[in-house]
């Protein structure tokens, strides 16, 4: 599971962090202004492809995507 945290964190940094902002597994991503809520669709697609799952649209809320740990929890609900 640690590996999942690291994979997701790496993705978020590559996609969103342009300076040297430190990111922890609990950093608020959307409410903290790091991830713009408009591009959650890319993040969702990344997770779905990476873990071979389907996250229903109504579960992919800004709240559920608000930190690396929350995203991991969401993904775990769908990995078999």
């Amino acid at each position: 599971m640690d590996e999942m945290q690291e994979i997701i964190k790496t993705y978020v940094i590559k996609e969103y962090v342009e300076d040297d902002t430190e990111l922890t597994y609990d950093s608020p991503l959307i409410s903290g202004g790091i991830v713009d809520s408009f591009s959650m669709v890319s993040l969702k697609r990344f997770l779905e492809n990476k873990y071979n799952i389907a996250i229903p649209d109504d579960k992919a809320t800004p709240e559920a995507f608000d930190s690396v740990n929350k995203i991991c929890a969401l993904v775990r609900e769908y990995v078999k």
Partner: peptide, 22 residues
């Protein structure tokens, strides 16, 4: 990701999927 606020509002009002680029 840096478009004007009025565009962001327009995007919110539209049912199409949205995504952003750096």
């Amino acid at each position: 990701r840096l478009v004007h606020a009025s565009i962001i509002d327009g995007i919110r009002l539209c049912s199409a999927m949205h995504d952003t680029y750096k």
